[in-house]
Computed example of a mutant assay.
Amino acid sequence: MYKELFDLSGRVAVVTGGGRNIGLATAMALAEHGAKVVIAEIDPKVGEEGLAALQAKGYEAELHQLDVTDSRAVTACADAVVKKYGRVDIAVANAGIALSAPGEEMPDEQWHKVVDINLNGVFYTNRAFGKHMLDAGKGSIINIGSMSGIISNYPQEQVHYNAAKAGVHHLTKSLAGEWAKRGVRVNAVAPTYIETAMTKPGMEKADWYKIWMDMTPMGRVGQPPEIAACVLFLATDAASLVTGHVLVADAGYTIW
């Protein structure tokens, strides 16, 4: 019985930013459990590399080039997936960036870039794929938030990132409330620092890294598969009673 709850055979999943890091690990996890996976990636080279990694394992996957800040493109992507497969069961809004700048000196352009990708892009993804799920009366959306949507990170200065991730969490709860009775679940995962290309610059700053680890009860960063496992749970029928939830995977960071 319980094994069947994690079976995604015949289901179609889309992962934005799915070409590497958490996105690729998530695509791998979903594919391993039977899902047909669509990588939606802005960088063609990264997307091709991610697709090749999936296909090398024999998984059914394809690539769509996508800029999540382009709402029309996101809608077109969702329509294309449903036109080809007849359905979309899982959407993972993972695409995101992280930048750092003091709040009082932050250029408008940097603020808008981070918020546009990390919050607006998540909403466009939820809206476009959510519409098809609502039509079908079922579906699971998982947004990648952050512990930065719960706490304010130190020592790096990233008010735009923190605000956007907090917005992702509340967007998740709001849409979950709207769509719960219509068969669509909306949840989020809030990771700690994960060892990826995005966090590498911070990890290479010895003073930053020491503070991060001193503030983390487990004393370590996370790995992409650890977040992918959280997404997998929320995507499957094992989480059939879960909606509007922000699953915090932070090595204990927000305990204190």
Rank of each mutant, 00 (worst) to 15 (best):
M1I: 08
Y2H: 14
E4W: 03
L8W: 09
G10F: 08
V12R: 02
G17R: 06
L24E: 05
L24T: 09
A25C: 10
M28G: 01
L30F: 07
E32M: 04
E32D: 11
A35T: 10
A40D: 09
E41D: 11
K45N: 12
V46E: 12
V46I: 15
G47C: 06
G50T: 06
Q55T: 13
K57G: 03
Y59E: 07
A61G: 01
A61N: 01
A61D: 01
E62V: 02
D67M: 10
D70N: 15
D70A: 06
S71Y: 11
A76L: 14
C77V: 13
C77G: 03
D79N: 12
A80E: 14
K84F: 04
Y85F: 14
G86R: 03
V88R: 00
I90N: 01
A95Y: 05
I97K: 06
G103M: 15
P107F: 08
K113L: 14
V115E: 05
I117R: 07
N118P: 12
L119D: 05
N120G: 01
V122T: 12
F123K: 11
R127E: 02
R127W: 02
F129S: 09
G130E: 08
K131A: 12
K131I: 10
M133C: 05
A136K: 13
I141Q: 05
S146E: 06
I150N: 00
I151M: 15
E157T: 14
V159W: 04
H160C: 11
H160G: 06
A163N: 05
A163Q: 06
A164E: 00
V168D: 04
T172D: 05
G177K: 14
W179F: 06
A180D: 07
A180G: 02
V184R: 00
V184F: 00
R185S: 08
A188M: 10
A188Y: 05
T192M: 01
T192I: 03
E195S: 14
E195R: 15
P201D: 10
G202S: 11
M213Y: 11
M215A: 10
P217Y: 12
P217W: 12
M218F: 12
G219M: 02
R220F: 03
R220S: 08
V221Y: 00
P224S: 06
P225G: 10
I227S: 01
V231L: 06
L232M: 08
L234H: 09
T236Q: 05
S240C: 08
H245K: 10
V248T: 12
Y253H: 15
Y253Q: 12
T254M: 00
T254S: 02
I255P: 00
W256R: 01
